[in-house]
Nucleic acid binder design. Structure first.
Lengths: 239, 239
DNA sequence: ACGTAATCGTGACCTGGGTCACGGAATTGC
DNA sequence: GCAATTCCGTGACCCAGGTCACGATTACGT
């Protein structure tokens, strides 16, 4: 079965590749059963928007495949990208739980399949299954702590070079490729990277050029190779 | 009964003035009973530290009275103050739930009474009382969303003036005093304010002077009066 | 009250990086 | 495979605000 966007559909959670390592795995069978009953699945093309910052929370999305960009933007149009979500992530959790508005905007950046659970269904489910509620609290705590780490690197304003180095190291760690050497595809535009580290597009270009000149990185098209992990790490720690 | 620091001690949660509006109020009596069993109380002098960023989480603190400063700091010594906690707040919740290290440092800035619940006791309590777990998830979500709002104002770097204006409006909103006009005590040093908005001490001084000159504020010692709410609000919204 | 330490006020200076303005390279769409 | 768009690279300019330096004030301990 294929979606309109050439996306392989994952039939249900039992066969989902993220079954093992994610939030609601080893719950009691009854809980799992209930969960599948209240879950609806859908696919989205690149460019679709799951929800928008400020919109009242409708419910949570569980990312099955594809990538989604979470961002927030100021009145003057400036945008800050907070995270690129991976399959297995829950989107819109804090807003759904607290009942406030979504605090970020979620844009699909590549064809994506996601499950949806409405707010009321989800809250009832949690109330009936304490174990799941604790799991959710844990997930929230972790989200909080990473958002927080993010915030530190932006807030305690390091230089643009430091922030970019940190970003590359993080990205490399999550997108390790095969052969041992740290080489990966960086599918974001300079503009997007700029928005992730809180800098301008031009600065990103310049710092990349600088890193290349200093032999910290090698860049060919969208593929990046880290030539000197230690060099980047040295940049990250203050001074 | 008085503590060594001249602090009025609150005997137990039943008589606590925050009983009504806080996290674990209208729980089932059994849950409340269990909660008091696992809660220990203590008082702390100004300057004491409840926990330090990076330390493994021991448990949560419930602030009964006094104020606690939550901050994080970078290797180069720069500090970012995230929040001044008020009585009724839970401190160290995300770290305690997730089992990771405390993500902030909590320093007592005025004599304080706080209750403590150890991590294992707390987790067991949550598992046994699903309703409380949902409550905790809500609290986490809200903490997350405010931290997040904080992050936006710092990250989408507005000018120092904008950030200070926003800070003053927020502070004023939470510390409204009597007579209708917005006048309040600002018990923080310029240094601390600087750390809250991510600026240097001198800049804070200068912007304050500027606001005073523009008749937005009136400052006498540590008491601040907002002369033109609308003027400040105009500064806040971009451009 | 008095000395010490912490805070505040202000000027001079300097720089990181934002902004503007292009032209060239690379994708994308038809 | 050609046009249109989007992205990348780079120079010129500039300014908000960080840093340093130092003196004036205020708060605090004993």
């Amino acid at each position: 079965m294929r979606s309109p966007y050439g996306l392989q559909i994952i039939e249900n959670c039992a066969t989902c590749p993220h079954k093992e390592d994610r939030l609601f795995c080893n719950l009691a069978p009854a809980a799992l059963q209930r969960l599948t009953e209240i879950t609806g699945s859908a696919t989205y093309p690149k460019g679709a928007t799951l929800f928008v910052e400020g919109q009242p929370a409708r419910g949570v999305f569980i990312l099955c495949s594809g990538h989604v960009k979470l961002s927030t933007s100021a009145s003057d149009g400036k945008t800050l990208i907070l995270r690129i979500s991976e399959p297995g992530d829950l989107l819109g959790l804090p807003a759904t739980i607290s009942g406030r508005a979504y605090e970020v905007t979620a844009d699909v950046i590549e064809p994506t399949q996601a499950n949806f659970i409405s707010r009321t269904d989800f809250l009832n489910f949690l109330r009936d299954h304490g174990e799941a509620a604790v799991r959710v609290a844990q997930e929230l705590s972790e989200t909080y702590q990473s958002a927080f780490a993010e915030m530190r690197t932006i807030g305690l304003s390091h230089s643009a070079g430091e922030k970019l180095a940190r970003f590359i190291l993080d990205w490399g760690a999550n997108h390790k490729s095969e052969n041992g050497s740290v080489k990966f595809k960086l599918t974001l535009t300079h503009e997007e990277i700029a928005q992730m580290i809180g800098a301008s597009r031009e600065t990103v270009t310049r710092v990349f050029a600088d890193f290349k000149k200093k032999n910290l990185l090698q860049i060919k098209g969208s593929s990046v190779t880290i030539k000197s992990q230690s060099g980047l790490e040295r940049l990250v720690q203050g001074s």
